[in-house]
Write a protein that binds this DNA or RNA. Structure first.
Length: 545
RNA sequence: GGUGCCAUCGUAUAACGGUUAGUACUCAAGAUUUUCAUUCUUGCAAUAGGGGUUCGAUUCCCCUUGGCACUACCA
């Protein structure tokens, strides 16, 4: 009889959520959804010294942005999202879902371990332990050394009680029995065996802040919250045997969750795991959202603010350490849920390939409608225009420009990876050239160009405003081509005068754009309109050379 | 140092003992084009090394090498 699938993502609020953590959350989510199970979110804030304000909200907002839904535990309130404010809600009957709010629970279970003889009280201070480590190389608090230390195993019961009554600081340590092969069955790696001799008597309960360590809290919570599968990063593999021993000590071995340890995300260059510094150094975000760390005053860039689409980040991350059943690379979240399998998670660490991430974003950008992209581009555009003596308020009154925005975006979107890059591709639609690109002039502005432009100017003057924009779609060979009226005006003239089409049109392009770039020329004239087009040609005739 | 995990083109990965070792990104070349880009086509490029097992190893085993993680009153 299989249990209901219940998985959890359990981050620590010690800063921005690392992209590797996002992938762990994603795999948990995919697994839960695929099996019709529950995805829980629990906050592991048992280290009061490392707590960073805002980190919890950040984590929940990031998952929300990416579409990684939470069924139980802490999550962004959906109701408040509509109202535009960000509040956190707790759902489910296994709470509280913040470990700092579960102190009494841990007390109870620590006592159980103490009573059953699986744990003991130790009075050794951090200073004493440091001294010991300095004195004895590779010192480890374990079966070999514990009888030389100050703890409830070496001291008489009344002496221990005396110290406790006096309020002496103490920790609770797990009593690891020596010479035992501990087997951990990992869903990704198979059977892992570690001898208990190399395990130390881990601290389960800290004296410093009256809270348990990760190991104790984790086992107690996963048990109480009826977690069926623990899917977490590979850094936890070495302590998995300890966790097995803890389940056993509690008598919970029959309902112990299945383990799956995910490969780590590595630096793109060199060695080591991906860190915050790599992002700064190599120029890409390692966090989903921008984060302002109140504790140390640092600001970390995020995928969202860099112009990434959430579905691109999800797709990219999903394929880092996992592959589908076929050659498919573009996956919607629903498709991922259908195809996901722990069997196809790789064992080795994955170097973070940022270029592939850019490619994914390009792909997903093309899938968005021009209207959507225009809406995303608008804030960037206003920002850019404000540097051209264009006040953002003025811009909002330029309704014609506003209505043309989707068209403009549609003309250049296939050449960008990110929304903000639309500006570099489309700037000339909004601002007339302020200069002319040297290279383009050298190659495309010929001796006859001024004469050509004069004649072209006169020719275009004769075109009516209506005809200016006239075009028809021609379908042949399943290709859609646009035939422009202006072609009928200009091409015969070029043919008659025996000018080169390239020579004329490239010069014309320089007048309008300022360089040899941009979409098809009639698309540009169509957006600019007759007046603006002619104005730019006159300006160019005055200013070039 | 100790323990564990891992090892296919530069990168992500495919090939559940038999393939000309596949795909995608990157890069290069070509085609298309009135520019730039897109797009399309082609190309470059890998089984870490050494032993076994087998008729046959990318695949199974061992050793070496290398990479990574852990080794806190952090998670």
């Amino acid at each position: 009889m299989e249990r209901r699938v219940r998985v959890r993502f359990a981050p620590s609020p010690t800063g921005a959520l690392h992209i590797g953590g996002v992938r762990t959350a994603l795999y948990n989510y995919l697994f839960a959804r695929q099996h019709g199970g529950d995805m829980l979110l629990r906050i592991e804030d048992t280290d009061s010294t490392r707590f960073v304000p805002g980190a919890e909200e950040y984590i929940l907002e990031a998952l929300d942005w990416l579409g990684i839904g939470i069924d139980e535990g802490l999550r962004m309130s959906q109701k408040s999202k509509v109202e535009g404010q960000k509040t956190i809600e707790a759902v489910g009957s296994h709470g509280p879902y913040r470990q700092s709010e579960r102190r009494e629970i841990y007390h109870r279970y620590v006592k159980q371990l103490l009573d059953s003889g699986h744990a003991y009280i130790a009075f050794d201070t951090p200073e004493e332990l440091d001294a010991k480590r300095a004195e004895i190389p590779n010192f480890q608090y374990d079966a070999r050394t514990r009888m030389q230390m100050r703890n409830s195993l070496t001291m008489a019961a009344d002496e221990v009680q005396q110290l406790l009554d006096k309020g002496e600081k103490y920790v609770v340590r797990f009593k690891v029995e020596p010479d035992e092969d501990v087997h951990v069955h990992d869903l990704i790696r198979g059977e892992v065996v570690i001898n208990s001799n190399i395990l130390d008597d881990k601290v389960l309960y800290k004296s410093a802040d009256d809270l348990p360590t990760y190991h104790l809290a984790n086992i107690v919570d996963d048990h109480l919250m009826e977690i069926s599968h623990v899917i977490r990063g590979e850094e936890w593999l070495p302590s998995a045997p300890l966790h097995v021993l803890l389940y056993r000590a509690f008598g919970w071995e029959d309902t112990m969750p299945h383990f799956a340890h995910l490969p780590l995300l590595l630096k793109p260059d060199g060695n080591g795991k991906l860190s915050k510094r790599d992002g700064d150094r190599l120029g890409f975000p390692v966090f989903p959202l921008e984060f302002h760390n109140e504790k140390d005053g640092t600001v970390s860039s995020g995928y969202r603010e860099s112009g990434y689409l959430p579905e691109a980040v999800i797709n990219f991350l999903a394929l880092l350490g996992w592959h589908g059943s076929g050659d498919q690379e573009m996956y919607t979240m629903d498709e991922l849920i259908k195809d996901f399998s722990l069997d196809r998670v790789s064992k080795s660490g994955a170097k973070f390939d940022y270029e592939k991430g850019k490619w994914f974003n390009h792909q997903y950008l093309q899938l968005r409608s021009n209207e959507e992209l225009a809406a995303m581009f608008l804030p960037v555009l206003k920002e850019k225009l404000s540097t051209f003596n264009f006040q953002p308020d003025d811009f909002s009154q330029l309704s014609t420009l506003n209505s043309k925005l989707p068209t403009i975006v549609g003309l250049v979107k296939d050449r960008v990876n990110f929304v903000p890059e639309l500006w570099e591709q489309a700037d000339f639609f909004f601002v007339a050239p302020t200069g002319y690109d040297e290279k383009s002039l050298k190659k495309r502005w010929k001796e006859d160009s001024p004469k050509h432009m004069q004649e072209l100017l006169a020719l275009l003057e004769t075109v009516s405003e209506d005809d200016w924009h006239k075009n028809e779609q021609i379908v042949n060979d399943q290709m859609v081509n646009t035939h422009w009226h202006l072609d009928d005006v200009v091409m015969p003239w070029i043919a008659e005068k025996e000018y080169g089409v390239g020579i004329v049109m490239n010069a014309f392009r320089i007048c309008l754009v300022g360089a040899a770039r941009g979409p098809h020329i009639w698309n540009i004239t169509d957006v600019l309109g007759k007046d603006e087009t002619l104005r730019r040609v006159r300006t160019a005739l005055q200013n070039i050379r």
